[in-house]
Measured scan of single mutants.
Amino acid sequence: EPLWIRPDAPSRCTWQLGRPASESPHHHTAPAKSPKILPDILKKIGDTPMVRINKIGKKFGLKCELLAKCEFFNAGGSVKDRISLRMIEDAERDGTLKPGDTIIEPTSGNTGIGLALAAAVRGYRCIIVMPEKMSSEKVDVLRALGAEIVRTPTNARFDSPESHVGVAWRLKNEIPNSHILDQYRNASNPLAHYDTTADEILQQCDGKLDMLVASVGTGGTITGIARKLKEKCPGCRIIGVDPEGSILAEPEELNQTEQTTYEVEGIGYDFIPTVLDRTVVDKWFKSNDEEAFTFARMLIAQEGLLCGGSAGSTVAVAVKAAQELQEGQRCVVILPDSVRNYMTKFLSDRWMLQKGFLKEEDLTEKKPWWWHLRVQELGLSAPLTVLPTITCGHTIEILREKGFDQAPVVDEAGVILGMVTLGNMLSSLLAGKVQPSDQVGKVIYKQFKQIRLTDTLGRLSHILEMDHFALVVHEQIQYHSTGKSSQRQMVFGVVTAIDLLNFVAAQERDQK
């Protein structure tokens, strides 16, 4: 057995438009009618409502009807409940999964919650491996369901041993009777949507819809739904939504950006999952974080739909894509998950301010006199920076000697690579993860907040409520011999709460 199987392995699926269902090699399930009293909570997966979006479509000038398939009504709160249950049931049916076995899954959280929910009911041990950027709410729900959680670096490539995929496979090879159901490759993922989600949409719309818009992560949702719609409703256009920084969209030119990270969760990847059939997507749109969270908040405030950030991405694209539809036509959007997962993220004004998705003037509360002053007023001194090749031991000596707790790590040209902190280095040394002679590049981390000289002290204040420091950066445009230009970030300084307090105190003292 291989040590790991690539999540982007070539698909062996034989589905073709027009091929009889009787030739399918898979076990198919028909939607079942729910009894009045459910035998367990797993029976509350599927049969989610279709809700008309009344205000947002009109606000953006849509002539067509805009409908939302509300997947956050599933038992675990997301569309991923469907595939989690289906993968477990299919693994039980073919004898792969037996009582007492362990389920391991690399996930952005929602599939993990679905699997942990099913594992709690069915009696399996469950280990979820997820990147650090995923919300604390997801972690809390997983723990409450009895799952064990392993976190991995957000910026690790999918084929790196440190990625959530790599760590999951390492655990599988170490733990007896453990299984990775593997949402990236498992046919049960798109089949769950082909058999149930798509049929529900067709039934709820009486077979009449002209466009379907869905955000894409593993691709199982859009693949399964689109294949069924292509068979039953061939005139329906399928629109895929991919965040900026991901590479799922086609044509490839759409993916060209210097951005590699994004805040919206559960969609987009740096590889093409095996289950994603991009041939059934008629057109791709890219979405960005700001519009995703703005539209998610709009869905909550104006439509009462308590959905997550990827739902915002989907609707932001839908109001663009559906401009081509006329009166009497219908566009369906998939709202994948609930706001429950993001209470401390985009639902929080403070978080939105820190990330730059909300401006101070958007909030009406009274601010102190210094709130709208610029960061450049602080008069920061030149920063202490270190090269990635310097040793951890030497870096600790320098920081202690100069009285700093942290320093930016830059390359020879001064471009920011990340940050090192005294606390992080000492804990890594004590844990045996690094040696004093190791290069400081081994303990770089990139989960820090950046701020510009033109940003306000109010925004800085919000950042420092949650973080010990902020890195002050400025952009530099560099022209190359080819005539092309590129933008790079340079370090201007490091600012802490002490710097802000000293500035405010000094100004008030001078005024007296």
Rank of each mutant, 00 (worst) to 15 (best):
G418W: 05
T389W: 05
I334Y: 03
Q439H: 14
F293L: 03
K359A: 08
I238V: 14
M298V: 15
L501T: 01
S310G: 01
H474R: 04
V491E: 09
R452K: 01
D289A: 01
I398Q: 06
R509L: 13
H462P: 06
T385L: 10
R278V: 01
S486G: 09
A249V: 01
H372F: 11
S486L: 13
L335G: 01
L426H: 11
K449F: 08
D289P: 01
Y479Q: 13
S287N: 08
M343A: 03
F448S: 09
M466S: 11
L353Y: 13
N255A: 06
D455I: 12
G493I: 10
E365M: 14
T391F: 12
A382I: 01
G309V: 05
L501E: 01
G483Q: 13
F469R: 06
A382G: 12
E412R: 06
K367E: 12
S313G: 09
K286S: 03
S485Q: 01
V495W: 09
L335I: 01
L378S: 07
V333K: 01
A296C: 08
E361F: 11
I498G: 14
L464Q: 11
R297W: 01
M490D: 12
L380A: 10
L430C: 10
S481L: 15
H480E: 09
V264Q: 10
S338Y: 01
F295V: 10
G268V: 01
L429R: 14
T421W: 04
D411K: 15
Q323G: 11
V473W: 08
L387P: 14
K355P: 01
N255V: 05
K446H: 13
V319C: 15
V409W: 01
D289S: 01
I416F: 07
S313R: 04
I398G: 14
I444C: 12
G483Y: 11
S313H: 04
T385S: 06
A497V: 10
I390E: 07
V494C: 15
I334F: 08
T454I: 11
F285M: 01
K512I: 01
V280T: 12
F404R: 01
G268Q: 03
A318G: 12
E377S: 10
G304A: 01
S428L: 10
I390V: 09
N255G: 07
G245Y: 04
K449L: 14
Y269V: 01
I398S: 12
V473M: 12
D411I: 10
A296W: 01
I463W: 01
R350G: 12
I238Y: 04
G328D: 11
K366P: 15
F285H: 15
R297H: 01
K402C: 08
D242W: 03
V264H: 04
Q450W: 12
I300A: 01
E250F: 07
F271H: 06
A505F: 12
F285W: 04
V409S: 04
A431D: 12
R297Q: 08
R374A: 15
K283F: 10
T482L: 12
V332I: 09
Q406D: 01
L471K: 04
Q302G: 06
R509S: 08
L429I: 14
R488T: 08
A497G: 09
N288F: 08
A506V: 07
E397N: 14
L422E: 10
E327V: 06
Q478N: 13
S485G: 07
Q489R: 01
G403A: 07
T274M: 08
K446A: 01
Q450L: 12
I444K: 01
D349N: 12
V443A: 15
L453P: 14
F346D: 05
I463H: 15
Q450F: 13
L363Q: 07
L426T: 15
E360C: 05
I267K: 01
E244L: 03
L422D: 08
Q489V: 13
A382S: 09
K367S: 08
S485D: 09
W351L: 05
S338E: 11
Q489L: 13
R400S: 06
G403E: 07
M343S: 05
W351S: 13
K345H: 01
G423A: 07
Y445I: 12
V491Y: 08
Q439T: 14
D282A: 07
R452A: 08
A382E: 15
I334N: 05
V415S: 10
E508F: 12
K359L: 09
E303L: 08
F285T: 06
E253I: 11
T482H: 01
L325Q: 11
D510C: 13
G328A: 04
I498S: 15
A413C: 11
I238R: 01
T257I: 08
L387V: 08
E253P: 01
K283R: 04
R374L: 15
A292L: 05
Y479F: 11
H480D: 09
V410R: 12
M298N: 12
A505W: 03
R509I: 07
E360R: 10
V440A: 09
K367V: 14
A506L: 05
F346W: 03
T454Q: 09
A318L: 01
W351Q: 03
S428G: 15
A296M: 06
M490S: 10
L254G: 01
Q450D: 12
Q376C: 15
L387T: 14
I272W: 05
L335F: 07
E475T: 01
K355M: 10
T274N: 06
K446Q: 15
F271L: 04
V491G: 11
L457S: 01
H394I: 01
E265L: 04
G483S: 12
L429Y: 09
H468L: 12
M466V: 12
I498V: 15
V333Y: 06
I477N: 14
G483M: 13
L464S: 01
L335T: 01
K402A: 07
Q439R: 08
M298F: 04
M343L: 07
K433W: 01
E291M: 15
T344F: 01
L335W: 01
G245M: 04
G441E: 13
C331F: 01
A431N: 15
R452F: 10
S428E: 15
E475A: 05
A407V: 12
E412W: 08
Y342S: 04
H372T: 13
E290C: 15
M425F: 10
V420C: 15
L500S: 06
S461F: 12
E465N: 15
L299F: 01
F503A: 09
Q326S: 15
A382N: 15
D438I: 09
M490G: 13
A322N: 06
D349L: 11
M425L: 12
I238N: 01
S310F: 04
M298I: 12
I463T: 13
Q406C: 08
L387C: 08
S381F: 15
N341A: 01
R488H: 14
G312W: 10
L399I: 09
H480L: 08
Q487G: 11
D455F: 05
G423E: 12
N424S: 01
G483N: 01
E327S: 01
Q329N: 07
K367Y: 08
R452T: 01
E303M: 08
F357W: 07
G414Y: 08
F503K: 01
E397S: 04
L464Y: 06
E250N: 13
T279G: 08
V420L: 13
E360L: 10
L387Y: 09
R400C: 13
V281F: 09
V495F: 13
A249F: 04
Q450S: 11
T395S: 11
V386R: 07
G441C: 07
A413P: 09
L457C: 15
Y262M: 01
L305K: 06
K512G: 15
L422N: 09
L380N: 03
P388F: 05
P436D: 09
A505S: 11
I498H: 01
E465K: 15
T294C: 06
E303H: 11
T496R: 07
G393M: 11
I239R: 01
E361T: 13
Q259W: 07
S313K: 06
T496A: 12
D277N: 12
L399W: 07
A505C: 01
V434W: 05
H462N: 07
A301C: 15
E244V: 10
I300N: 01
V443H: 01
G309D: 14
K320C: 08
D510T: 11
S313V: 11
G483F: 11
P368L: 14
Q487Y: 09
E327R: 14
P408C: 06
S485K: 01
E258K: 14
Q487V: 11
L422F: 11
L305A: 01
F404S: 07
V473P: 07
I498Y: 11
R330W: 01
M466A: 09
Q489P: 15
V440G: 09
G423V: 13
E263G: 04
D277Y: 01
F469V: 08
P383C: 07
